[in-house]
């Protein structure tokens, strides 16, 4: 399994042609207390870089973009009732959705962990 990152602070874990997507530790920290999450419904076709989900704190709303193109397998319904999970476990339990990758070659445009860490360090 490999994990990739976007400049918009989403992560994707890939196993075969299945990806799991969420937002990074850096993103949850920047947003503050998460109060609301909206995940995509099963079967929705997503484009790389297109709107996929919404995450909100009290004073900010942010789109979550899909790191790759594909079709949603499932959204994480737990988050609707427990948005705080995004603060507590952003890169594990608080995954937003899973999808079937349409074009695995798109992963090449994303960063790996060291590259992302370096990118984040440059933002501060």
């Amino acid at each position: 399994m490999s994990m990739y990152f976007t400049k918009d602070h989403e992560w994707i874990k890939v196993e075969g042609d299945t990806g799991t997507v969420g937002i990074t530790e850096y993103a949850q920290h920047a947003l503050g207390d998460i109060v609301y999450v909206e995940v995509p419904e099963k079967g929705r076709a997503l484009k790389q870089g297109g709107d996929a989900a919404v995450v909100e704190s009290v004073k900010a709303a942010s789109e979550v973009y899909s790191p790759v193109s594909g079709t949603v397998i499932a959204g994480n319904d737990v988050l609707a009732g427990q948005p705080a999970l995004v603060n507590e476990s952003p890169e594990d339990q608080a995954w937003f959705f899973t999808l079937t990758l349409a074009n695995p070659a798109e992963l090449e445009a994303l960063m790996d962990r060291p590259a992302y860490d370096e990118y984040v360090a440059g933002l501060e």
């Binding site: 909100e56 704190s57 009290v58 004073k59 900010a60 709303a61």
Partner: peptide
Amino acid sequence: LSTREQHIRREK
């Protein structure tokens, strides 16, 4: 639930 409103969501 102000994130629905214009001062945060602007054109959305």
